[in-house]
Each structure stands twice: as C-alpha cells, then as structure tokens.
C-alpha cells in the first residue's frame, strides 16, 4: 500500500527555527508539539511558501507554537489572536492565515472573537488545541474542563459544564469544523489540510493532553496513559453513524464534523472593491 504522501515526508525540520528557538517551552510528552508537526505537514502539502503563511496565536502554552516556525509569526495578546488575524487577512488576502489557540485563549477570553469569525466566515484556519485546562498559569479551570473534573481553581470539582468547541463553531456559522487528537496524528494532518483547503472559516479542534496538570489532578496518569485514553474514547464520525447509541456512550466524535460551501468574507469585499473599479472605468 502506498504511504500517505504527508506522512512519508520528513519536512517539519525545514520549517522550524531550529537554531534560534529550541529547546521549546513545552513539558516532555506534551501534545502541542505533535499539533505543530501536523500544521507544518499540512502547510507543506498545500505547497504554500513560507513567506505567504501568517501564523497567529494568543497567549498560553499552545500559543507559543508560532515562535518555533519559520513563517510570518504573530504572538498577540490573550484571546485576541483571531481578531489580529482578521486584520492581517482582510488587509492582505493573499496571505494564508492560520490561528493557533487553546481552549482558554480561544473560548474563554477570546470566545467572542471566535464566534464572530465563524459568523463572518473569513478565510482563516483556526487550530484550537484543547487540553481542557490552563497549562501556562498552572492548571486552572478552562471552558472545556468537564463537569466534576478537578483543576487548581476547581479544587472540589468543576461545577460548570464544558463547551464543545465543534458544536459552537458549527452553530456560529463556520464553513468547516473537524476534531482530531494528538494520538491520531495521520488523521489530524488530514483534518488540518482539509481546513487549509477550505475557502472560509475552518476550525479544527486538536484534542491534546496536559498530563502535567489535567492528568495529575484528575488521576489520568502520564502522557502515555492520556494518549491511550484518547485512543479508547475517540470514535470516527463515519463509524459512529452505524453504531447504536449505547455503543457511543463516553465516546467523542472525530473527523470532519461539518463541511459546507458559503460565500467567504474577503471575496465578498473584493467584489465590492471591483464593482467600484469597474464604475470608475466607465
């Protein structure tokens, strides 16, 4: 069988600021590095040049990702990555704009920007790395921390419910919504590639492990143990369709969850500019 062209290439090295920025800040075993590899392989498969990619992030563990990558990289304020990215994309639509955010950055402090970017359907691919906790500040509760889970700010268990980022993105009007995990790396590559290929707002949730905080506080074990949990609980959306509901209990769906064609914001705006230019010629 032919190997997947993305997987068979070892391209990530060429895209990293190897000499300048390593070693990285992440804990050993952290899934964010895996997501970084997936993003790079997807970009490589798209054939983008390094100069035409803008990688934008906010604040948090996941948002440290761009500094290691040799693109136009923009590490912004907490929660605001998508808002900065909107300015970059609209002012220069030829740039391929990718946002890397986390569950706290993207859904709590940046939740408003997240839903409005979905609604606007601007051509930005957002990779939301969901590890269900605030890692950088030391394990506090996030908008995706499950009910009854423990966190530094939920010492008696989380009384709130967690968001499902994919349902939120779909409801808010995104064109492409997918979920993968850092255990299923080949699938994650493809899902991000699918997002980049989409003209419109694409949101890929990359489910990841924070064994340092979430795993420890919730007795889920080390990185390997958490990856195994992902393997056990992930259910491809296609497979889920033919299974009875009782078999889906405790599982979460992975794959492309939503994919539609809709008018894209920058294109609509360009049409408006063009219409004025045509009037000028007449």
């Amino acid at each position: 069988m032919m190997a997947d062209p993305i997987q068979s290439s070892n391209v990530t090295y060429d895209y990293l600021r190897v000499k300048k920025r390593f070693p990285n800040v992440w804990c050993a075993g952290c899934g964010i590095g895996t997501v970084m590899g997936s993003i790079i392989r997807a970009i490589d498969k798209m054939g983008y040049s390094k100069d035409e990619v803008a990688l934008v992030s906010g604040i948090g563990c996941s948002s440290r990702l761009p500094v290691y990558c040799d693109f136009n990289t923009l590490h912004t304020t907490h929660g605001r990555a998508i808002a900065f990215a909107t300015g970059v994309k609209l002012a220069k639509p030829s740039l391929k704009v990718i946002v890397v955010t986390g569950d706290g950055d993207g859904l709590a402090i940046g939740g408003n920007h997240f839903i409005h970017a979905c609604r606007r359907n601007i051509d930005i691919t957002t990779v939301l790395i969901n590890n269900q906790i605030y890692g950088m500040t030391g394990g506090q509760c996030s908008p995706t921390t499950p009910h009854d889970s423990f966190a530094a700010t939920a010492p008696y268990g989380n009384m709130e419910k967690g968001f499902d980022p994919t349902t939120l993105a779909k409801a808010a009007g995104a064109s492409y919504v997918a979920r993968g995990t850092v255990y299923h790396v080949q699938q994650l590559d493809k899902l991000i590639y699918g997002g980049l290929n989409k003209k419109g707002f694409a949101m890929v949730e990359a489910f990841s492990n924070c064994h340092t905080y979430y795993g420890r506080l919730n007795k889920e074990g080390d990185a390997v143990a958490m990856l195994k949990l992902m393997k056990e609980h992930a259910m491809p959306v296609k497979a889920a369709k033919v299974l009875p509901p009782e078999k889906l209990e405790g599982k979460f769906l992975t794959g492309v969850l939503w994919d539609v064609e809709m008018p894209e914001y920058c294109e609509l705006y360009q049409n408006l500019i063009d219409s004025f230019q045509e009037k000028d010629k007449e």
């Binding site: 808002a83 900065f84 300015g87 609209l90 408003n112």
Partner: peptide, 29 residues
C-alpha cells in the same frame, strides 16, 4: 474605503478593533 481599494470592518468590540488594525498594519497597510 472600498472605493479607494481599502477595507473597512466592523469588529465585535473595541478590543478586536484595535487588534485588527495592528494586524492590518503589519501587512504594510
């Protein structure tokens, strides 16, 4: 702005407005 080939966007709040213009300026605009 669209008549001059530029872009106007109504953002969701003033935090986003400020963010968007910084992003746009980084592209040389």
């Amino acid at each position: 702005l669209p008549k001059c080939g530029g872009h106007f966007i109504q953002m969701e709040d003033e935090i986003a407005s400020m963010a968007s213009i910084i992003g746009a300026s980084l592209t040389g605009t």
